[in-house]
Design a protein around this nucleic acid. Sequence first.
DNA 1: CAATTTTATGATTGAAAGATCATATGAACT
DNA 2: AGTTCATATGATCTTTCAATCATAAAATTG
Lengths: 83, 83
Amino acid sequence: MKLQARTPKELGHAIRQARKTQSLTQKDLAIKSGVWQETISKIERGVVATKIETVFDLLAALDMELQIQPRTKVDEADLEEIF
Amino acid sequence: MKLQARTPKELGHAIRQARKTQSLTQKDLAIKSGVWQETISKIERGVVATKIETVFDLLAALDMELQIQPRTKVDEADLEEIF
DNA sequence: CAATTTTATGATTGAAAGATCATATGAACT
DNA sequence: AGTTCATATGATCTTTCAATCATAAAATTG
């Protein structure tokens, strides 16, 4: 599973998707990552521009990592809001 | 160019590398991204855990983007500090 | 090596994130 | 429908980041 992110909102969606793929609740992830469930809720919805450390905490708990790469062409379908 | 990052320090290195590849000074990047040169300096050295928005601003100015993916196996060489 | 450019550091200030708790809304199941 | 589990919201407080300016140190170049 590979997910692009260019905005806090997209990042939130990606994190949520990764979490769901692993059948974890926000509470589960909160315990694994040390990040509060309330905070996870906000991050997943993109209502806060979180600190990168928090992102790393979440990704580590999800066994994921960040990769930085050249911008890829944007697919038409991706321009529409997913949620 | 694809660069992994699991910590603020690694992320900083990745950003610095991307910047240098494009022959930009911190000042150049500051102007393009709207992020202060002093802040870029700190981020590249990993001395601050920046906000994700700032990272997105920098990456956008560098025409790069984030990808979230499953953790890859760690290469021995990558365990040593680069700087 | 002197001058210029680039990067780092240090201090202050205002804004914002995360912890924390309490509660509300929503979903899923019996 | 009522209960339980999951997610969202709202408020307060502490901590921390980015802007800002000034300057120092390091690197580059003439």
